[in-house]
Design a protein around this nucleic acid. Sequence first.
DNA 1: AAGGCAAATGTTTTT
DNA 2: CATTTGCCTT
Length: 719
Amino acid sequence: MDVTEILKNLNESQEQAVTSDNQHLLVLAGAGSGKTRVLVHRIAWKVQVENISPFGILAVTFTNKAAGEMRDRIETLLAQSLRGMWVGTFHGLAHRLLKMHWNDAKLPENFQILDSDDQLRLIKRVTKSLDLDDQKWPPRQSQWWINSQKDEGLRPDNIREDKDPYLSVMVKIYRSYEELCNRLGVIDFAELLLRALELWKNCPSVLAHYQNRFKHILIDEFQDTNSVQYQWLKTLSSSFSDVTAVGDDDQSIYGWRGAKVENILSFERDFKETKVVKLEQNYRSTSNILNAANAVIKRNADRLGKNLWTDLGEGEPIFLYSAFNENDEARYIVENLKSWIDQGNNRQDAAVLYRSNAQSRVIESALLQFDIPYRVYGGQRFFERLEIKNALAYMRLILNCHDDVAFERVVNIPPRGIGERTVDAVREHARNISISMWSAAKAMIVDKNLNTRSANALAAFLNLINEMSNTLEALPLSELAENSIEMSGLIEMHRREKGERGQSRVENLEELVGACKNFTPESIDTPVLAQFLDQVSLEAGERQANEDQDAVQLMTLHSAKGLEFPLVIMAGMEENLFPHKMSQNEPGRLEEERRLAYVGITRAMQKLYFTCAETRNLYGTDHFNPVSRFVRDVPKEFMKEVRLKNTVIRPTSFSTNSRISDSGDLTGFELGQRVGHHVYGEGVILNFEGNGPRARVHVSFEQVGTKILILASANLQSL
DNA sequence: AAGGCAAATGTTTTT
DNA sequence: CATTTGCCTT
């Protein structure tokens, strides 16, 4: 056997991890230390050197994308196909299990997956049916609470209400929601995991089968596992299986959604004979960037402790620009992106990272103005869009007209005269005699217990679905989709919608047809339509399809995890924004914000910018936030503060309807002029605002930064 | 039942 | 500021 290829270009600790023959292995991999590489090579090592069949290997990742990449990389390395090896996300694997053992899991054979949107819809209904005021019991909050319980593995019966009125209402909602899901034959994402765990706990024979099969288990991003996932792992692994867990406690940023960093600590305790390997050499960033990252993360108390180092050299300092407002910040960002591109670099090698999605808007308009192509990641995903979900609901009804969730969604879309009252009546009837809404509607029309208008409208809908089923079911997937959006009237509805919005919805529907064309079914014994709908609910898909165009990347710090870019700009480095003000009061959450900063900084390979705005208009009001503590934690020696040059007039806004007034003419001062102030010292005039006695002036002072002063009372001296 | 206007309401996100 | 929700009218 040829091991040289597998061990080539691995450093000492990487090689240790790849070849370790301890039963269990915990790899603590710092940012950019080659963690995926180790995982890929370890699997290759097991297959090629230890002669383990891919059939006995289970690899778990956090995103579908990561799963695909891992399989590709191993197959390339080994130059062989790995059919039989299970690679996927926890949710994907759980789904696969439940599909195979639906009967043991007490599920209907064709159970559907609810996305969080559908889930919220059902919880709203539950809240209403329990006669609870949805102002006092916001469905969003109930949804969050229920999911947290499920992430902890808790059913309503496991929760001790202890006369706590809040808890007892929550448990009541949880219980009714569970009943509703069971009745509809649907399960949400958290349920997927919990059911899969319970399947194993309740069916020893099923568990034994998988314990026997998967004797080699590997898990990526271990710091992001929640309680149920950890229990799942513990249940699956038996005394004769080996487990490899890879993670970085400093990059745990999903605590707010149930992830437990402590799982890393528990691992050594629960899995005996664990070898721990630390990967501390970083191959990604210059030492200035890495030192900055280390300085920031050092201030966290609960760390396993790692010391990342690099031999890539010092590189450039980190640039800090304190902008006057968010428009000036955007302008500075775009100028620097432009010069990066003008120097011959790829646009896609530059990324702008921010704490919250709302920040992208200003940066986007600046990029548009300067004609720089960009791509925004995150936000709403393709298969979660309203128009797409409607189209999918029609396709679901073609496959199975008893799908109540789909039925309710589109029964009156486009509007066809079936209002809330009619739907209520149908739902009530369906519930009373335990049949689907489809059957209930049919029965009610025949029995004539509806007014003529509603009955006719409802009959028209039933006929439409029948006709669609008859004419479309046998067609290839893409034609089925194309005809569905046509026959249902969805595309016509959006064509008539005025404005850009309608147009983009039409385009999205057309893109759905394209997505259907590209879909490759996995098995031959399930209908292609069913496979497509299942896949779509498990991976919502990317926002835009034009992946190939070279574009600057915009995303939140969260979605940047796992990625790297030669140039990174971290925007909005201000207190209250980052760390977010919601996290300021709890030490635990503040530590998570700090880890988020660490993740952001360690994305950068060569060049890193911090930008902040002294005035930020958010939701229509001005905020004056001090610079983020994470910036202040970086020692000055690694940073270079960019100051305004007094010879250059900085426009404070890039937009055409700029409010730079000409009041300067009347005041004896002009933009860019050097002035002196008795308290703040010397500075440069950036902008005038307003007229008359209320006229204000924005001055960037060398010592204290930008201040907004009332011109009449500031008593500025021209210099 | 549907469309229009005022009021409310804004972290992070994968599955 | 911008978008979504809810109430009100036709």
